[in-house]
Design a protein around this nucleic acid. Structure first.
Lengths: 206, 206
DNA sequence: ATATGTGAACGGCTTCACAGCC
DNA sequence: GGCTGTGAAGCCGTTCACATAT
């Protein structure tokens, strides 16, 4: 199984396909063609098939894909067969909105703890998740159970916190701060830059 | 000036460069090399120069770039010389966090109105921005002054609201709902899919 | 000497065309 | 006949190498 050869974009789309499959399952559809599924995901059929081909053969020629089988296969390919624990750093405006966001749990993620530097916020609980002091971060991560973190702190603090996370064994960071994080090669960072997205859009309005 | 030929990613990075330039201006740095600026933005020097080349020649060979001149040129290239009005639809968890988010204004955007379908939220004001009833959306947009919208409504409502926005002349949508919007070719959509970003990350943790 | 600007080479993702199987 | 799986072709963005300007 060639693992590190798979295009990042393809992995991205797999999640998209899976979400569409879940909807089909809810509607008790049992079979889909690459054409139908691709349309639902907003991509071309050949691309869908190519993406799936990175992981194996899941379809029946002349027939299509079994929705349940394909959903299961993608789950396995993505390593999303069980609930993933995640921590959140920064429980301000954006952070607490993320804590309340139901979409994460729905896709198999659980925010198990939140951290903030502000004593005013520490001790509270948002959506049942306690907000802890940032000093306790390293202790909490010492167990090694948590490998993913969401970073929603101000720009000035982001790199420092990121260093701390990496030092404590976090392998993946979803970064909402408007700075480019420097991390070792083995750590993966996805950057969601809200202002940048708006700015990018504004280029296209005349 | 070839306009529609410029890679989308390049436009994206221009915003990034500009942000770095602003920091340099604050520190009263007057000149940068492509090497230094590229490092700050997390890209390669050649890429920075290529990106700038799409828009013109701004540097002095053997010397580098004048920070002020380059910042101004990029601003102009991005069409970000004045404040852009934006509306927000969906003032729930995420929506109200976005209303409070200061990063937009800092980059030249102003959320001038918010809309929600929930009568409980309508009439309130968040961060000085009034939340209006969703029925009033078309009326508000009738003036044609607002060309950009942020969509933070539940998945079920997203496509319907998007249609309404497009029908009222909105040209660019920043979509936070977890569905792929179908819009006419002349409308630009940037999709920020929070759950998808996490899922993508989880693939890379072993 | 130093750093930009750019045509050419490179590499990777997407699309095509068709072989293979139901 | 219909649809998947896949090597080959095409396309686009990145990187290289170097000509050019100060």
């Amino acid at each position: 199984m060639p693992d590190l050869e798979i295009p990042r974009k393809a992995v991205y789309r797999l999640s998209l396909y899976q979400r569409c499959l879940q909807r089909l399952q809810e509607n008790e559809v049992e079979t889909v063609s690459s054409q139908a599924l691709a349309k639902a995901a907003g991509v071309k059929p050949t691309q869908l098939r190519k993406d799936l081909a990175y992981f194996g053969q899941f379809g029946k020629r002349g027939l299509g894909y079994d929705v349940g089988v394909l959903a299961g296969s993608i789950s396995e390919a993505l390593g999303r067969t069980r609930l993933q624990p995640v921590i959140l750093i920064g429980a301000g405006n954006l952070g607490s909105a993320l804590l309340r966001y139901q979409g994460f749990r729905k896709e198999g993620f659980e925010i198990v703890a939140a951290f903030d530097a502000d004593p005013m916020l520490v001790g509270r609980a948002v959506q049942g998740v306690p907000v802890r002091a940032e000093e306790d971060l390293a202790d909490f991560l010492a167990g090694g159970a948590v490998k993913m973190a969401i970073l929603a702190v101000p720009a000035e603090a982001a790199q420092r916190v990121a260093n701390e996370l990496v030092g404590s064994g976090v392998q993946a960071i979803l970064n909402f701060s408007p700075i480019v994080l420097e991390v070792p090669g083995e750590v993966v960072v996805n950057h969601v830059d809200l202002a940048l997205e708006l700015e990018n859009l504004s280029y296209f309005v005349r």
